[in-house]
Structures are given as C-alpha cells and as structure tokens.
Design a protein around this nucleic acid. Sequence first.
RNA 1: GGGCACGUAGCUCAGUUGGUUAGAGCGUUUCGUUGACAUCGAAAAGGUCGGAGGUUCGAAUCCUCCCGGGCCCACCA
Length: 743
Amino acid sequence: MEKTYDPKAVEAKIYQSWEKGGYFTPKITPGKKPFTILLPLPNANDPLHMGHGLFVIEDILARYRRMLGDPTLWLPGADHAGIETQYVFEKKLSREGKSRFDFDRKTLYQTIFDFVEQNRDINRQQLKKLGFSLDWTRYHYSLEPEIIKTVLHTFRKLHQDGLVYRGERIVNFCTHCGTAFSDLEVDYVEKNEFLYYLNYGPISIATTRPETIFADVAVAVNPKDKRYKNLVGQKAVIPLIDKEISIITDGLIDVNFGTGALKVTPAHDATDFEIGQKNKLETLVVIDKNGRMTNLPEKYLEMTVSKAREETIKDLGKEGKLIKIEPLRHTVGICYRCKTTIEPMIMPQWFVKIKPLAKPAIEAVRKGQTKIVPKKRFEKMYFDWMENIHDWNISRQIVWGPQIPIWYCLDCNPDILINFLDKKGDKVSGQYQKLKEKYSFEEIKNGLQSLSAGKNPIYSLDDKPCRKCHGKNILQETDTFDTWFLSGQWPLTTLGYPNGNDFKYFYPTSVLDTLWDILFFWVARMMMFGFYLAGKAPFEVIHIHCRVVDEKGQKMSKSKENVIDPMDTVEKYGADALRIALVFGAAPGSDIHIGESKLQAMRNFTNKLWNIGRFILMNLELVANQVPFYDPKTTGLTKEDREILKDLALLIKKVTSLIERYRFDLAAENLYQFAWHRFADEYIEYSKDRIKGGDLVVLSVLRHIYLSLLKLLHPFMPFITEEIWQKFPRENKEPLIISPWPE
RNA sequence: GGGCACGUAGCUCAGUUGGUUAGAGCGUUUCGUUGACAUCGAAAAGGUCGGAGGUUCGAAUCCUCCCGGGCCCACCA
C-alpha cells in the first residue's frame, strides 16, 4: 500500500467495478420488502452544485439497506425544468443577439431540446464521481414519451373529474419572462417607494401605483369607518379623466392605512381583484403583457409602467390633485427567476382545483402513514401550507415543456389572439378572425409562436375535427405545463404506473429526501398525485435535510463568490472526504457549513483510515498471513482485547440505530471517534508490543475490528473502504458493497 | 401581521426522556515522535450553557418575561 491514500487512483476504477457487477440494480424478490428512494431529479441542463452533494444521505441509506440484504432501488433521473432551462437558454440567445421571438415555437422547442441534450450527460457523470449507487438502468428523463403520456392522461382524468378548469383570475405575471407563475414562484423584497395621496373629489385615497388610476372601478372604505359613513354610495371622481366611480365598503380595508380609502383596481392587484369579485365590479386592463400601458389616454399609451407613474404624478400635480407624497417601505413581489417586479394581471389560465387533492395528503401525514423527519418543524409547515392551499395555476406561457392537451377550433373561437411568424419570418399578431383574411391556416400553424384563448373558449381534449362545426382549423393550446405538474408525478411515471412491474413492486417508495425549499413545490404535489392516481402516499418517510452554506454560514451564491464546486472538491480531496464532510456535524434542520478546513480534516480522516489499514496489512504480511480469522470462541484474548471487542459491539449498535433515526451526523462522529481515537490511538498503540512478541491473536483482533469498521464506514465513504477491503485477506470474498452489515 | 425553530469553548456545532468533573471538529499553546500515518501522537489553556426570574433534592435541558439574529407563511393598498 502507498504511504498516503490517493483517491484518484481508486475512485473511477471502483465505481466501474460496482456498475459492472450490477450491484446498483435490485432483484425484484416477491415477498421481500424493497427499499426505494427516488433521487430528487436535478435539472437536466445544470451541473451539480454543493447542495446536490447531500444526496449522500440517500446513498448512505441505500448502501446500508443493500448491506442489510434488502432489494434496494435508488432511482436517478433528470428534469427538463421548464422555466429554469428556458431562462438559461434565453440568456444564451441574448448573448448571440437573438431572442425567443425570432423563432416559431416548433423550432424554438427543438433548439432548446438539442441544447439540453448536449448537457444532459454532465450531471450523470458527476453523480457517479460522488460514488452514488444509483440504478442507471432505470434512469429517466421527464420528457420521455412514456412519461409525457402518463402526465397527459392525468390531465385528462383531472378534467374528467371536474378538477381542471379554465379560470380568469389574477395571476402573477412576469413581463420579462413573458409568463405567469404560481404563487410559490414569487419572491418578495422590501423596497423604498412612495405613497401618493390623491384627490378623488369628495374623498381622498392613498396609493403606490398612481399609473393604474385609469383602471379604477371603485373606491372602497371599511364599513366600520365612521369618517366616510355619509359618503358610501356616493360617487368619487378619478382625476385626469374625471370619471365617476362608486364609493363602496369592504372589510378588507385597513382603517389606519393612508386615508382609509382604497382605489379598487381589480385588474392589477390581488386584493382589489377579490373586492371586485365580491362586488361584481368590472375589470379594466391598463398594463399589457409586455409591461406597457394600454387602454388609457393617448398620452400614456405604450409607456413603461415606471415612466407612466412619473408622468401621471407630474400631471396630477399640475391639476392640483396630488395632495402629498410619503415615503413608504413595503414588500414587492418579484420574479424568482429574473427579479423583475411581478405584475398582477387578469388572464385566463388553466387551474387545478386543489383542495380535494390536498385532503388525503394531509390525512396521511396526520395519521402518521407518511412521516416527516424532523417532525417538529416541518410537519407544521406542511400542514399550514396544505390547509391554506389555493388552486394551482398550471399554465406557463413558455415553450419548454409539454403543451397542455387542449385543442381550440379557430373558427368557433375567432377571438383567439395569435402570434406567429409569417412565410417571410416577420412577426404577426392579432385575432384569428382578422388574420384569416390575409393568411392561410397552414401559414399560421407553421409559424405559430403562441395563442391565447379567452375566458370561456370552445375546446376539445383531442385534435380531431371540431365537434361543433367539423372544421379542421384546430390548434393546440400553446401554454405548457408547470414543470412541477410533471415532476409531481415522478414516483408514478418513473416506476411505470399503472401496470409496470416496478410500480407494483416498488411503490410506495420508502424515503424521500430533500431540502425544505421544494417541500411545497414538489413533495406536497407528489403526495397529492400519489393519492389521486394510486390511492396511496408515494413514500413512507419524508426526510428533510439541511442546507449547505459556506464556512461563515453564508448561502453560497455566484454574486458572493463563495461557491465551492463539488467536483473541484472531489478532485482536490477525494469523494469520500467530501461525502463525510457533508454529514459530519450536520444537525437535522440546520445549515451545514462547508469550507477548506473541514474538507481538509475529513481528507485527513480518509488518510488515517488508509494508514490504519496499511499498518495492519503490513503486519499480517510479516507473518505470511498465518493469522487465524477471528472467531468469538478465540482463546487467548487479553482484557484489552475483550474491551475493544465490547466497544465495537456497542459502536455497531449505536451506528445502526443512528442511521435508522436519520442521525447521520452522530453516526459519522461516533465512527470517527472510534476509528481514530479508540482504535488507532489506544488499541493499536497498545498492540505494538504484542505484535513484536509474535502474538497472532492480537493481529486477528486488529483485522476483525478493522474489517467491521470498514463495513460501518462504507455507506459514508464507499470508495476507500471498498479499496482497502479488497486488499485484505478475508473470509468473505464478496465486494464490500454487498457484504452483510455487521450485527 | 401570524407562526416556527434557535442563541453552549476563538469559530462551527453535539448534548436523545432534567442526574456524577458540559463534549466533538477546526483553531491556539507546550512537549514528543525518522519503520502505519508530520494528512502523526501526548498534554494544556479556553464555557457563571444570551440575560432575568421561577419549578425541582438537582436545570444547558421544563415554565414565564426580556434581548439578539435566523427562517417560513400572509391581500397591507
């Protein structure tokens, strides 16, 4: 053995030998309960970051259960990641001086597809470098035809059950990304803005958005507000356009904010929308999908929102309608992806009625059929969210993803808005009834970019000729599914729901391990789909792991320049050192700090382990391997021998129970302590004299303890333990990965 | 605005149902060690367990209040 451990000489070779041996692929054994984990699918297009390193927790579980003899499946995959990927791709386009509007949707989709294909193998190779014992024969990609087929089937089933509807509601719209988002995809930041007090005739209002006054349809006050009692039912006047609107009451109004009177703009604010719905107010739209002003006095037409605000204020001032301006610190919704301020907008979209789906998913956790670990903090988060869940907007106005399987007959829906590139490649927009005078259906279809149907369109769930008019001018909805609509069905689609053998054997899976940040996005949705489609929760345990931060406790981010690339770390210290660094000291639910000093310490531990092996092996060879294998009945044991054997038995018990309880941090710490300080510092030092005296019993104990230790450490540090294991003369000739867990 | 955890050695954190001198890693200091390992060993320094009060034979651990930063949720215009 070399004097120091060299991971580079070992890791690739060992991984290949595992793959070749087929150890990652479980044998379906009827009657024997399998152990199954689904890898939280990384984005197909992205290389791994340090957070993905925490998949090591899943690998520890998988390797442990495999050694216990369970048919163990850890299933890998990759996600097309709709918005994320399209965003990255558009940035690339813009560097090339192009934009998504230069392509028809078919071409754009195919180009993104090819782009992702080029990168899809990268993170697969990286997962292998980290030593993850994933069953690559069952690798899945979210855009595989079989997966999409199941997803579309789910949509139809939801539709049939009355759980999908087209709703015109206020949605979170990003004018930069050009798409609506679900509530979860909106981030909030505090901003210093201004509160403008405006004269609305008999009443004054306060607003942060004077540019939307043209879309006001009422002024609302709290019914309990005595100041305005006499004014309710009377008319207020919108300045600049002198339009009369009613003064109404609503309990949502805060008496203490501003003047206690709110201008109601249902089309551009969520609260106002709600008030509008209750009071059956009309909705006036003054901001379009590009973030430009529309439907208002000509002067402001086509202005950006911020420009319009500036101008409106100037004009209000001139007319003497601006009473005062106060600075205001408040929270503003921004696009989680590009940070553009979210515009609440009225838009018809496809929604899933979620309450009926949430109900069994709540019950399952409440009854303990699915356990969340650590329970205390995250169960509450789960309940809070699930019990207050809002209908799920699944429409995304992007191309990267499967289109929603809805088809519109253009002749029956002549008001459909269409964007397309004509034969010459010029962009054309308009309602179909106008477009059809100039362009053939074929030309529109070939150059189609997007369409948007109205609130109550006539539609069909297939592309057959129109049932009503028998016309063949049919176009599919261009909205695509929210990515989580697909990944939410991952436990079903990857296992071959409803009839696949894998599904029958491996569903429900055992553990789902993830960071809390996608608990709602992903885990909650999988729970709901699991019940809806399979009638059973998709997992028995949801394990929430901690977040990786840098040495100082800061979140790793490019802008802070504190990102540590897991692959650089593997290169420098070896995969085993990184793996154990990611669990050592990582308390449940808290952050895990990763930095050079910790990685070095863990690298030192791998080397220590190596040298313990080297010492024992050298001494075994000195006596020409004449050492008998340890046996509980071995005679001639000293007091020290019996003590260390007792401590080993204790360690085995402890580590086993800690793994079962998801306390990998404590398991690692115990192993570290035992190996380095109890075994190496004390027992090995003690053994030296006996070895010199030709004592074979002590060598037999040394080897026994060490081989047991290798087994216990294998889930954490698979490469080095496997490598040393195979160098040792031993009774069990199998590779370590499938050796039985010590008892 | 509502909620959830947290505050233990210079730094990062353990401390399971309250029970003998409160632990680990890294860092610091001293000493040692040329045949497993300098990516080593031995030892030491360093904590009135955020603060105050309470329950108890006994509190880092349970209760109340205060201080400090963290996170999640929410329609404050």
